[in-house]
Design a protein around this nucleic acid. Sequence first.
DNA 1: TAGTCTCA
DNA 2: CACG
Length: 214
Amino acid sequence: MRDLFDGEAEPPVVTMAAGAVLLRGFARPYEAELLAALRDVLAISPFRHMTTPGGHVMSVAMTNCGAAGWLTDRSGYRYDGIDPKTASPWPAMPDCFAALARAAAEAAGHGGFQPDACLINRYIPGARLSLHQDRNERDVAHPIISVSLGLPATFLFGGARRYDRPRRFALEHCDIAAWGGPSRLHFHGVAELKDGEHDMLGRQRINLTFRKAL
DNA sequence: TAGTCTCA
DNA sequence: CACG
């Protein structure tokens, strides 16, 4: 008796922690739709480098779609329905974004997920996201779904306390990380992006992070 | 409350 | 030099 994924092949589902999994290649069937929808979103609310409350400009460029968008500036971290750059609502969440997030959450054991916020992060080589918790959402009972596109990256997934040493996971184009339940508030981040060239996206990595913020 | 920051 |  041999299963499909023995030998050299890697399993499609990797456990990172209790309630946290990596779904390898899960977004592949949505790839073309996702990229087309992303272009439309960026035409309305383009990427910009936000400033942290401490006054540092983030190396990762961000934008959002959906009813709520995550922001940081001198006055703090928060969700807002209005893009401060355009003074208009964030673009609507494309149907294929919501459908993918829902399917991934289901596959990860978090059924009934209905995201109202999608934070879109662009990493160019050298960009990173230091260890942090996602804790600006009203109800932390909802999971976080994170879709990787473009250049590969190293995901750092730690524990409930900042000083819990993070484990490192390779994230590739169309991989999805999903966490909730006991690991919902775990510290996580992305190591400095190494240089490279992706066939479809060039010298960048784009991450879609779905949340139910409201 | 500080905080997804930087540097040693 | 890369990494933690």
